[in-house]
Design a protein around this nucleic acid. Structure first.
Lengths: 203, 203
DNA sequence: TGAGGATGTTAGCGAGCGTTAACTGATGAC
DNA sequence: GTCATCAGTTAACGCTCGCTAACATCCTCA
C-alpha cells in the first residue's frame, strides 16, 4: 500500500496540523515535538516525512501561493469579461480565506522565515497573483492610476483576509452569509476607485 | 538631568527599535542582542531599562491599544454626528496605520506572546475600540445587522492595516494620497452595508 | 522464511537564547 | 573628596530547541 491509499496521507496530516500551529503561535513559537504530538507521533518522527521544520513551512507557503495563482489565472481566463473576472477573483480569494484560514495567515506573516530561494519563489508567485488582480481591476476601473489600483488591491486583500482574525465566534455570520458580505465589501471598496479622479484634483 | 530632558529617552529609543525588529522578524525571531545592537548597547544592557524581553512587547502592545482607544473615543465625542464620527475614526486609524506601521503589525500578530494578564488587558482595550467602531457604523448604516457590522468593521481594519504590507515601494502613492485613498476605500466598503438588506433576502 | 524498507521510538548533542552576576567608569550631591 | 547611583560591559549559567544516531517494529514480497 502506498501512502496515497489513505484518505489523507500522514504527510498531509502533518502539514495541516503544522499550518494550524504556526498560524496560532508563530513559526518560532512552535516546537517540532508539538507538531509531532498533534499527529500522534514524537518530534523526531517527523523527519521521516520532512527534511526539517523549515521544509514544512516552505511547502505550506509555496503550496498556498501556487494554488491561489493557479486558481486565479483559471478564473480570469474563463470569465466573460473584466467585471465577471473581478467577481470570480473575489469569490475565489474568499473561498481560500475562509477554508484555509491558517494558510492565509501564514502566507503574509511567516514569509521571512523561509530560506532565500524558497522566499524568492513564494514572492514571485505572490507578485504574479497581485498582477492578475491589478490587471483586472485596472480594466474595471480605468479612471484610477496604476498606483491607486495597486494599493487598493492590497487593501482588498487585507479586507478579505480579515476572517481569520475573528475566531469562530457565535456572534458572526455563517459561511455563506460571510462570503457574500465580504464580496460586497470588496466590491464596495473597489467602487471607490471610480470617483478617484474627482478628488485627486483637489490636491 | 533626568531622562525626559533628551528629545527621545533611551527607553523610547529601545521601544522603537524593538517594535521595528519584532514586526520584521517576529517576537521569537529577534534576540535581545539584536535589539541592544540596534540602539548601540549590548543585549544585557537592556535590562537596565526593562524587566525582560516580554516587558518590551507588553509595553508596546498596551501602548498602541490604549492610544488607539483613547484617540478613537475622543474623536467620536468631538464629532458633530455619526457620519462625522465615522470619518474621524477612519482618519485616525489611517494615521496610526501609516505612522506606526510596526506597531499596527505587532498589534494583531504577536498578541499571543504576552503573559496572561497583559494579554487580557490588550484584548479588553481592543474590544472597546471595536465597540466604538461598531456603534458608530451601526448608526451610519442602520439597515445592517450587528453581526454584519462587526464583520465589516474587522474587514475595514484589515483594509486600513494593509499599508505595512507594501514596503515603501516607489510605485506607491505618497502619504497624503495614500491616506485619502484608504479613506475612500473604507467608506466604499462600508457603503456596501446599505444594500445589505436587499441581497440578504435572497438566502 | 527472512531480507529490506517504511515508520516509529528514545537518548543525546550542539547551538542559541534569555537572564543573572560581577565588575567598571562617569556623573552629580553633599 | 568621597560616595552613591546610573548605565554600561563581559562572562557564564541553564534551558530549550532542532536535529541526528541508534535501535525497534511491522509489512511486504521474492
Amino acid at each position: 500500500m502506498n501512502s496515497t491509499n489513505t484518505a489523507v496521507s500522514r504527510r498531509d496530516q502533518i502539514l495541516r496540523e503544522a499550518a494550524r500551529l504556526f498560524a496560532e503561535r508563530g513559526f518560532h513559537g512552535v516546537g517540532v515535538d508539538e507538531i509531532g504530538a498533534a499527529v500522534g507521533i514524537s518530534g523526531p518522527g517527523l523527519y521521516r516525512h520532512f527534511a526539517g521544520k523549515d521544509a514544512m513551512l516552505a511547502e505550506l507557503l509555496v503550496g498556498i501561493s501556487g494554488r491561489l495563482l493557479t486558481a486565479g489565472k483559471r478564473r480570469v481566463a474563463e470569465a466573460s469579461g473584466p467585471e465577471a473576472a473581478l467577481d470570480a477573483l473575489i469569490r475565489g480569494h474568499i473561498d481560500f480565506a475562509i477554508d484555509d484560514r491558517p494558510l492565509i495567515t501564514l502566507h503574509d506573516r511567516e514569509l521571512d522565515r523561509l530560506r532565500e530561494s524558497d522566499r524568492k519563489l513564494v514572492r514571485q508567485l505572490q507578485r504574479q497573483y497581485v498582477e492578475e488582480w491589478v490587471a483586472v481591476v485596472g480594466r474595471v476601473h480605468p479612471g484610477a492610476t496604476e498606483r491607486e489600483v495597486r494599493a487598493a488591491v492590497h487593501g482588498v486583500f487585507g479586507l478579505l483576509n480579515s476572517t481569520p482574525h475573528l475566531g469562530a465566534q457565535s456572534s458572526l455570520p455563517g459561511r455563506a452569509e460571510m462570503s457574500e458580505l465580504l464580496r460586497r465589501l470588496a466590491l464596495g471598496a473597489l467602487g471607490a476607485l471610480d470617483s478617484a479622479a474627482d478628488w485627486r484634483v483637489t490636491y
